[in-house]
């Protein structure tokens, strides 16, 4: 009992001592905090080094999203690439967990160190593809999915992807 009482007084004394310590608070926005490049903020869609859309509409980000705030529809371009006909992120639901970025097999979807995206109207938090798409490659500069993948597109035929042999001639008779 007395011990408990003493503990209360010790607490009070410790707290009283804090009268002389400095506040930890950072005065944002006068002082901007340092955000690491891999900080998980606003989501963007990037382009590959050749300036083509990286997103292939594989739907993995959407299924990885724990709050189900990503919706998209796949389409096929003239040149054979898959692309999202629409790509929508409802940021009013997004929890910036970064699961979509981890799931993305093409480095298309990336989180950026920008978190200042408040709106007075919730509907402005719904970002469509044109709001998400940026021109650059984001954090990963060299990766181009179609150079690795076996799918043929205009300008990259079968056998021209990374470590691929020339297409087999089925009618060849050589062993």
């Amino acid at each position: 009992m007395l011990k408990a009482l003493a503990s209360q007084f010790r607490t009070l004394w410790t707290i009283l001592q804090h009268s002389f310590t400095k506040a930890e608070t950072v005065q944002y926005p006068e002082r901007q905090p340092y955000l690491a490049p891999r900080y998980r903020g606003r989501i963007v869609l990037t382009k590959d080094p050749d300036g083509e859309e990286r997103c292939v509409a594989c739907n993995l980000c959407a299924v990885a999203c724990p709050v189900d705030c990503i919706a998209l529809q796949q389409g096929v371009k003239e040149d054979g690439r898959w692309y999202p006909e629409f790509f929508r992120i409802n940021f009013s639901r997004c929890i910036l967990c970064g699961m979509c970025e981890e799931a993305c097999p093409t480095y298309a979807i990336q989180l950026t160190p920008d978190f200042e995206m408040c709106e007075y109207d919730r509907k402005n938090m719904v970002y469509e593809k044109e709001h998400l798409q940026i021109e650059g490659t984001g954090k990963y500069h060299d990766y181009n999915f179609y150079r690795v993948s076996g799918l043929a597109i205009t300008g990259k035929d079968k056998g021209q992807a990374q470590s691929e042999a020339e297409p087999v001639d089925v009618k060849g008779l050589l062993p």
Binding site: L16, H18, T21, A23, E24, T25, Q27
Partner: peptide, 8 residues
């Protein structure tokens, strides 16, 4: 409270 809790 701010003073004692190291904030403003």
């Amino acid at each position: 409270l701010g003073v004692w809790q190291d904030r403003y």
